[in-house]
Nucleic acid binder design. Structure first.
Lengths: 141, 141
DNA sequence: TTGGCTGCAAAATATTTGCAGAACA
DNA sequence: TGTTCTGCAAATATTTTGCAGCCAA
């Protein structure tokens, strides 16, 4: 399997737990949290620990194979799609969607900013309401 | 003092601790964390507790008088400037700068996104290197 | 006077770390 | 076989909460 070679060549030791994490993340667009990953992988590997999940995520982060999203103030989400892109989050249910548009050329920074910072990249958080929540009554909370 | 009236009229009880927090935040562009606020206010009110800082920040958030920034994955930062604006963060030292530009008209979303989400607002995180860090050797870590 | 606030401590939540044993390469 | 990883537990870090007493209004 080529996936195995890909990670092994980067020096990642591939245990069954790690393979299960990689399999869960592969093509996953749900932007899971560490706990989401833990719960999903636990189904096949009931003894897996959070330490292993975080350990593996840390290794994948350093390899540039996953990205950390800070769009949710409560916890980190992880995105296995490392193509530069942006996100949109539902302000009611927290669902996160992808936005594959490169706005860089439209995001010129004014001189008072470029005097102080040399810009490198950018990431946009869009906020909105998802289709499902639009059909539902607003949470009164 | 008008600041007092402003908050009192919104039902906020103004204790000396809260006034000190408000005074520290007023016009502050350093994007402090809860701990930054705690440490600063502690100078004048040595007995202040984190509970009071968080309690007050919570009240100010609900009043829309401060914004929570998620640009730093490690901890929340707070911004007393609630004018819509964006941020740029130094990838070496974490310094956060403000970007007062409205890019909304340039941020059109593609149909596959607007089919699923009704957009409301957006916030851009720019990443770069600040002047000071540019002069310094890169951290080898 | 009194309901909201403070400060203390403890709890809750998220994430990281130490270490002995397990297992991949 | 040796190094890295796992799983458990404990440690950290951040933020929240319970509660008795205090105090702004």
């Amino acid at each position: 399997m080529e996936r195995i070679e890909k990670y092994r060549s980067k020096g990642l030791k591939l245990t069954p737990q790690r393979l299960a994490i990689l399999e869960y993340l592969d093509g996953n667009t749900s932007h899971p949290t560490a706990e989401d990953i833990y719960r999903a992988v636990k189904k096949k590997h009931p003894t897996i620990s959070f330490a292993t999940v975080y350990n593996t995520l840390q290794a994948l982060l350093e390899m540039g194979e996953v990205m950390e999203l800070t769009i949710d103030p409560e916890r980190k989400h992880f995105d296995p799609n490392t193509t530069p892109h942006h996100h949109i989050v539902c302000t009611r249910c927290g669902k996160i969607g992808d936005v594959f548009v490169d706005y860089s050329s439209a995001l010129e920074l004014p001189p008072e900013v470029t005097e102080e910072f040399t810009p490198i990249s950018n990431h946009i958080d869009f906020y909105g309401v998802c289709k499902k929540c639009n059909k539902t009554k607003r949470r009164t909370k």
